[in-house]
C-alpha cells in the first residue's frame, strides 16, 4: 500500500517527525485500523527515499506512544483503541500551538471572542487547502 503522506526535506521539521506525524494522522482518521501492519522500515525508507535510521526513529516514537507494537514475525502492528489516542496526541499538538497563539493574543490585549474568531478563520483557511500535503519547498 502506498504511504498516505509525503515528507518534505526542506521543511523546518525533522523528517523522522514528519513520518511519525504522517502515520499518527493516518491512524487517527482510520487509514490504518487496529491489527493493520505498517510497511517495513525498508519499504518506507525506499518509498520516501530517506535514511532507514530516520524511519526507525519515527517508528520507535509511535511504539513509545503506544500506537503500534512489534509482533513477532509480522512487523509493526497498529494496536486496538489507538484511533482515539492518535486523535488525542493530535489534540496535544494543536494545544501546543494554541498556547503559543494565546500568549501572542494576551500580549496584544485581545479578548476571548476575537481569539475564537481568528481560530475559526484559520480553520476555514486550512480546510480550503485540504488535503494537507507538506509544502513542496523549493530546494537549494
Amino acid at each position: 500500500m502506498p504511504l498516505p503522506f509525503l515528507v518534505n526535506p526542506n521543511a523546518p521539521v525533522p523528517i523522522f517527525r514528519q513520518i511519525a506525524d504522517g502515520f499518527r494522522a493516518a491512524i487517527g482518521r482510520g487509514g490504518y485500523a487496529a491489527g493493520d501492519l505498517l510497511p517495513s522500515v525498508r519499504a518506507i525508507a525506499e518509498e520516501l527515499g530517506v535514511n532507514p535510521n530516520t524511519v526507525h526513529k519515527a517508528i520507535a516514537e509511535l511504539e513509545r506512544d503506544g500506537l503500534v507494537a512489534a509482533e513477532r514475525g509480522r512487523g509493526m502492528v497498529v494496536l486496538a483503541g489507538t484511533r482515539a489516542q492518535a486523535r488525542a496526541s493530535g489534540d496535544e499538538a494543536v494545544m501546543q500551538h494554541l498556547a503559543e497563539a494565546a500568549r501572542l493574543a494576551a500580549a496584544a490585549h485581545m479578548d476571548g471572542e476575537r481569539f475564537e474568531q481568528l481560530a475559526r478563520r484559520a480553520m476555514r483557511a486550512a480546510s480550503t487547502q485540504q488535503p494537507t500535503a507538506p509544502r513542496t519547498g523549493a530546494s537549494s
Binding site: R42, A45, E46, E47, L48, G49, V50, N51, P52, N53
Partner: peptide, 9 residues
C-alpha cells in the same frame, strides 16, 4: 534516493 535507501537497509 531509492537505491541508496535500499543499500542502507
Amino acid at each position: 534516493l531509492e537505491v541508496l535507501a535500499r543499500m542502507r537497509s
